[in-house]
Write a protein that binds this DNA or RNA. Sequence first.
DNA 1: CGCTATTTGTGCGTATGTATC
DNA 2: GGATACATACGCACAAATAGC
Lengths: 251, 251
Amino acid sequence: MSRSQVSGRPRYAVVAQALTEDILSGRYPVGATLPSEHALCAQFDISRHTTREALRRLQALGLVTRRAGVGTQVKSDHIVQRYVQVGDTVSDLYQYAKDMVLNVLEVSDIKADAATAALLGSEKGEAWSQLRGVRAMDGGGVPVALMDAYIIHAYRGVLGDIEGAGLPIWSLIEARYGIVPAEVRQQISATTLGRNEAERLAAREGDPALRITRHYLTQALDVYEVAISLYPAERFTYSNTLRIEQPVSVS
Amino acid sequence: MSRSQVSGRPRYAVVAQALTEDILSGRYPVGATLPSEHALCAQFDISRHTTREALRRLQALGLVTRRAGVGTQVKSDHIVQRYVQVGDTVSDLYQYAKDMVLNVLEVSDIKADAATAALLGSEKGEAWSQLRGVRAMDGGGVPVALMDAYIIHAYRGVLGDIEGAGLPIWSLIEARYGIVPAEVRQQISATTLGRNEAERLAAREGDPALRITRHYLTQALDVYEVAISLYPAERFTYSNTLRIEQPVSVS
DNA sequence: CGCTATTTGTGCGTATGTATC
DNA sequence: GGATACATACGCACAAATAGC
């Protein structure tokens, strides 16, 4: 390192910073290919090792993707300040469901009509299985939530695993088919209980309730499970925590 | 690589996998120090480069930390499947608030009594400023939310910036004091509107509503702002998306 | 289709700097 | 100061993936 260490900072950091600025400023727009490692070595007069360390930083920042035979391409022109959800992650949902038991009330096979397809975010006419059930604390007693779940036909095999299982449906699908959700979309809204719902939840008609709809998507962003849960207000609060993810520094 | 490529997998991957299993199985418990790079080179008969690449993977998985002069220490004995919140991050809240205007109804300085301190997650007797307001779409018209905000005394200077600002309070604090939330805790529950609330929201008493409480915390995990918003059900749905963060594979 | 050129990936050797005990 | 461990940096060679002819 005695060779030409001028500034106090590592050379790969200097290079990473320079490239980052070039990307943020638009000199290398999204979609563009950065100079090859070889070219960068020449440009900055550094070894391939150092070049790669610099590019590794850009990769960690989510600015570029790298592929053998293709090159280093700009993926994003801004550094996302990433908030990582640390509470209520999917694994926490798992914890939560462990103390609950799902009692199945009704199962049926359906073909999605227009309204259902819109709800599920799928194609009209697709085959799904529908399940209605009640979640309650393990010991029994007061029901906590009413649940409406839709499972795409290919995974209907889990239906038999559900009754009494203290596990969320997506994890049953994972266990049986090895499918892990790549993305989970969640909508939360307030509503009031209708007569039927109140009855099944041992609550009063008109009571406020939280409706949580979750869409589980595959890597290809196809919806394969939808779960709609209805929680009487006093029995459930949704909470989560966002923590800023310290970005990998280029400097 | 012709030198001794037996399996189809990279050697660093084999080593990373082996070390990962040793950590997960408890052979290297949390807090323990892994063998030095030199020792691992000898143990697996690989070069220092390859060793470092393997350790880099463990680092990326959050399993170990590395420090010069100390060594490689086990930080965690389980791989967290990290879900990154891609929608409704703090920057999205910013977008959302841009189209809204906050009309201040009332401002007062308070000292937290026991109940308030519990709500705010702070010490009893601490000095806060309280603000009540209504959020409405820019053009005016129907109010969207009733808001109750608490700002710690040190940042009360932003109170003057709030009226009519199309910005969330935390961003006003950032602009004036340079404080960025390191963590945001959020609770969502369902409720019904009381008479006063309904009146100020131009809604009907007893209508369902979403109550969102957000605690904004500093790096030191001190609460410096709390915002409680009340949204009539039909005017607002909370939605977010969790995306799995592709973990760096060791295999 | 195979061939070639390009680009990144994997792997080794070596030397020196810096942090820690 | 000395010993140890990781960090930074140079060099080289070959493998694998990709694109284009």
